[in-house]
Nucleic acid binder design. Structure first.
Length: 282
DNA sequence: CGGACAACCTGGTTGC
DNA sequence: TGCAACCAGGTTGTCC
């Protein structure tokens, strides 16, 4: 679920509701959600610490504490991280609950448990298992058309796969890759090395725009995703290709039906009318 | 290097 | 109604 816009939305909520708060106590109901971290360690280390900042890199959250620690969170497919009232009922699959001094709770919940939490010293954030292979963030200043060109240059790999590779460009997942390729009018099966300069420019702009618009809509809720205040996002109403197989393309003047194909075992949605590109001309 | 695929999990939907 | 098969937004590792 959570791609860059969803994680950014959660980050903003947590920044607003968690920064300055003190962790009173931590309850961990299962340890297998921890990465490179011992259960006792996290419970003992976090107690009494104040949250100073909440950052994001790609689809990962970094929660910084006043004293030497950072909590790194990847939400996987169904992970949720939110702040709620101290009396709110804890849903099934809640794995970690931090009681906040002055009331309220900070909760990690994850049905499928693909998500994980890692506790590291503040000086070890970059070398952490969670972040060490995370590349340039798609909303950062480092993500320029030139950088995108560099990522794609000379590679025979399939474009969609390359855009999903978090070690190069961090933040895109299956939904926004499909949406960005549609907006740019580029075919998902194109080879990286065949993408033209013009297409790279359009793709760069499309990626930025779709991410910005989704952040403004607080993300896409299809099943599990909720914001850091536990409400759904609304960008699902504005998806143009994702999940729209056999429906008519929304671009005016185009009457093609959206197609679904499988690439690397995952669904890709695109419009055969709008996204022609190299592959189609072969 | 890259691509195909399985694995990690649970739950919802589909089809027989 | 029951049950099996399949599907899902992510990441990692293996094998070829």
């Amino acid at each position: 679920m959570p791609e860059l816009p969803e994680v950014e939305t959660i980050r903003r909520d947590l920044a607003a509701h968690l920064v300055g708060r003190v962790i009173d106590s931590v309850q961990l109901s299962r340890e297998d959600i921890l990465l490179e971290t011992a259960g006792d360690d996290i419970v003992e280390s976090l107690q009494g610490l104040t949250v100073t900042e909440v950052r994001r890199r790609g689809k990962n959250l970094i929660i910084d504490f006043e004293v030497q620690f950072a909590l790194l969170v990847n939400l996987g497919m169904t992970g949720q991280l939110f702040v709620c009232g101290a009396q709110d009922e804890l849903a099934e699959h809640t794995h970690m609950v931090a009681e906040l001094s002055g009331g309220g709770r900070f909760v990690f919940r994850d049905v499928r448990r693909f998500g994980h939490i890692e506790l590291v010293g503040a000086d070890r954030v970059g070398e952490s298992v969670t972040l060490r292979n995370v590349g340039v963030d798609a909303m950062s200043e480092g993500f320029t058309p030139e950088y995108l060109a560099e990522v794609l240059e000379g590679r025979t790999a399939i474009l969609k796969s390359a855009l999903l590779d978090q070690s190069r460009l961090a933040g895109l997942g299956n939904i926004y890759v499909c949406e960005a390729l549609f907006r740019a009018g580029v075919h998902p099966e194109a080879r990286c090395c065949d993408v033209t300069i013009d297409e790279i420019q359009r793709l760069h702009q499309a990626i930025r725009e779709v991410l910005e618009e989704s952040i403004a809509a607080e993300g896409t809720t299809i099943s599990d995703y909720v914001t850091g205040r536990r409400v759904p996002g609304s960008f699902q109403e504005r998806l143009e290709v994702y999940g729209r197989e056999d429906e008519i393309c929304r671009r005016s003047g185009c009457e093609a039906s959206i197609m679904r194909i499988v690439q690397s075992n995952r669904s890709t949605f695109y419009c055969p009318g709008c996204q022609r590109g190299t592959r189609q001309q072969e």
